[in-house]
Design a protein around this nucleic acid. Structure first.
Length: 271
DNA sequence: ACGTCTACCTGTCGGC
DNA sequence: TGCCGACAGGTAGACG
């Protein structure tokens, strides 16, 4: 479910409210992608200092160590003064003196991992190797171009891989390529400077717009306040196979790249 | 070192 | 109505 916009919307929905909160109780459900890495009770008494984001990871800085939270495919976080009893898919919960933070994740591809610091081996394994943050200043055209030139894959899969730029998942990869008029199958290393500039701008615009709209709610995503996103209503190609292109009316096409669906307009995206 | 494929898990949807 | 396969927002790890 969650790509960068959904993760950022989630962060914005509880970061301020939880800052300074003291953990009073920790509850866990079924196993997630990795073990927590610490006894749940060892977190009791710690406080949450701030919530940052790196790619699709949320980093909760605690008074000792930090929690890395990933929402996987089906995860969502909720933060509220109180919540109903935990359900079958609520697999992690922090009770604090300011409210309850709960991870709901039916497929359990998500993760909550405690590490002593960002330089801990597990943290390094997960976070080093991540590409540039698309909404920050370090995402400049030159570095983007250098990353694309070094790849021998098609541009869609390079975006998804997150080694050059992070946060662009399956929805926004198709959307950004449509906005930039670039065919998803184009080899990344052969894109012209002009196309790279267009794509660079398109990625930033699409992601920023999606954050503004509260993310995309395809099935059940909701932000930390429980509210659905609306960007999916603005999707020009994702999920629209066979429907007319909103620009030229040509039928949107669907193809598979690396076992994932890609949507594009054969007329608007010719290069 | 890179590209490609598998696996993880549950729910939903379309077709028969 | 029920069963079965295909598919779903991600990505580490194994393999060649």
């Amino acid at each position: 479910m969650p790509e960068l916009p959904e993760v950022e919307v989630t962060r914005l929905g509880f970061a301020e409210a939880i800052a300074g909160a003291r953990i009073t109780r920790v509850a866990v459900g079924k196993p997630l992608r990795w073990p927590l890495g610490v006894a749940p009770d060892a977190l009791v008494g710690l406080s949450v200092r701030q919530v940052r984001r790196r790619g699709k990871y949320l980093l909760l800085d605690l008074s000792r160590g930090l929690l890395l939270v990933h929402l996987g495919m089906s995860g969502s976080l909720r933060f509220a003064p109180s919540l109903p009893a935990r359900g079958a898919h609520d697999h992690f919960e922090l009770q604090t003196d300011r409210g309850v933070l709960r991870l709901h994740d039916p497929r359990r591809f998500g993760a909550v991992v405690w590490v002593p610091g960002e330089d801990a081996p597990l943290a390094r394994k997960l976070l080093s190797g991540l590409g540039m943050e698309p909404l920050s200043g370090d995402f400049d055209v030159k570095a983007f171009e250098a990353g694309l030139k070094a790849s021998r894959q098609n541009i869609k899969q390079v975006l998804l891989a997150g080694r050059v730029v992070v946060g662009v998942g399956n929805i926004y990869a198709s959307e950004a390529l449509f906005a930039a008029h670039i065919r998803p199958t184009a080899p990344a290393s052969r894109l012209s400077r002009e196309r790279i500039e267009r794509l660079h701008g398109a990625i930033r615009e699409v992601l920023a717009r999606a954050v503004e709209r509260g993310g995309s709610t395809l099935r059940d995503f909701s932000g930390a306040q429980g509210d659905a996103g609306h960007f999916q209503l603005e999707a020009k190609v994702y999920g629209r196979a066979g429907l007319p292109c909103v620009v030229c009316a040509a039928p949107i096409r669907l193809l598979r790249q690396g076992q994932r669906s890609t949507f594009f307009c054969p007329h608007c995206q010719r290069g």
